[in-house]
């Protein structure tokens, strides 16, 4: 399927018999049957700011597309529009952190990681400043194409000292990570789920609370251990339900903090003899999967290991559900692969 569309650049196309609307920038990733919460990041930040004068919001012409508009409407004098200038966004956030503020800076993950990296590295991380970067369209969450698909942001950021990295799964994670990020003294990069965000984990584990640096078992299982982050925790949980009908018992260890990784929990669970599958909404290079693999190798614990993630290629444009099927991120694709590995 690699670059299939581009290899046929000069072939005219017919209208499809079944129309699939592409989701552009406002995809709701919730599978059918999940409740959704509207703009959990924006509401959580607006609420936190009511009790904390240090909080300010900055965006690079993407407040509306990162749910920061909710904060901006609640606290208009604490919102600073930086325009389409991501280098300025990150360095100005650093400057405000120097002055004692806790700035939340939002843009798309591609622009933070690719365009503003040097400023995140030297102006923010090197000085260990409490800038909180919350960035939309992580991994494959838009069908818009590689310009907006941050399939390698975790690989870029994992090498950065001082930086905490969060990949939330659902509305609960997104809402709860906000106060945790404020409490954390250093810089944080969080992948954002915005718009209508599914409430997934509370259905499986009602007492779940997000904590920075902690992986938590959401579903127990004897045959397979899935270590997942971000929306792939939702996919893994849904796939586990389907596999249970076939008598395959899948555990799902949700690992929303990519760095620092909860190596103690991962090693304890990895040592129980199950097939270990990592699942991430990111390239198979440089993300959760390789972080887990290195953890296992360093500890000398080597279960059978498989990776679910995006291939090492520029992804195609199209309708998001089709792309999730194509690249193996859909619930069905996850279930089929796990079944095939047993």
């Amino acid at each position: 399927m690699t670059h299939a569309a581009r290899a046929r650049k000069y072939e005219p196309r017919q209208a499809p018999t079944e129309r699939v609307a592409t989701s552009a920038m406002i995809a709701s990733l919730a599978a059918e049957g999940y409740d959704t919460v509207s703009a959990p990041f924006g509401h959580a930040l607006a609420e936190a700011a009511r009790h904390d004068d240090r909080i300010v919001g900055l965006s690079a012409d993407l407040a509306k597309y990162t749910d920061l508009h909710v904060f901006a409407q609640a606290h208009p004098d604490r919102f600073h529009q930086m325009g389409m200038a991501e280098q300025l966004l990150m360095s100005a956030a650093a400057g405000m952190a120097h002055e004692g503020f806790v700035p939340f800076a939002t843009t798309y993950a591609v622009f933070a990681a690719r365009r503003a990296y040097d400023f995140i590295c030297m102006a923010i991380a090197e000085e260990n400043l409490p800038v909180k970067m919350v960035c939309g369209l992580p991994g494959l969450t838009t069908g818009y194409g590689p310009s907006h698909q941050a399939f390698e942001d975790l690989a870029i950021f994992r090498g950065l000292p001082n930086l905490t990295i969060i990949d939330p799964a659902d509305a609960a994670d997104v809402a709860q990570m906000v106060p945790a990020m404020i409490e954390h003294p250093g810089p944080v990069y969080a992948r954002l789920l915005r718009g209508k965000v599914a409430n997934v984990i509370p259905r499986y584990k009602p007492d779940y609370r997000f904590e920075i640096g902690r992986a938590q078992m959401i579903r127990e299982g004897r045959d397979v251990l899935v270590v997942s982050a971000g929306i792939m925790t939702m996919r893994a949980l849904d796939a586990a339900e389907a596999l249970a009908a076939d008598g395959i018992d899948v555990a799902v260890l949700h690992c929303p903090t990519i760095k620092p990784l909860d190596t103690d929990t991962i090693l304890a669970e990895a040592g129980k003899g199950r097939l270990l599958v990592t699942a991430e909404n990111h390239s198979v290079i440089g993300g959760l999967g390789e972080a887990v693999a290195a953890t296992l190798m360093r500890a000398g614990i080597t279960p059978a290991f498989r990776q679910i993630g995006l291939p090492d290629e520029f992804l195609e444009a199209g309708a998001l559900p089709s792309l999730h099927d194509m690249y193996g991120l859909s619930t069905k694709a996850v279930g089929d692969r796990i079944r095939g590995w047993l």
């Binding site: 300025l88 405000m96 952190a97 120097h98 700035p103 030297m122």
Partner: peptide, 25 residues
């Protein structure tokens, strides 16, 4: 030494944030 410089083109943007912050205060 207020900031870590060296990667050139950083100071003025940081200064924008500081100036905004000082004005807020």
């Amino acid at each position: 030494m207020e900031i870590t410089g060296g990667s050139l083109g950083h100071g003025l943007g940081i200064g924008v944030g500081m100036a905004l912050g000082l004005r807020r205060k």
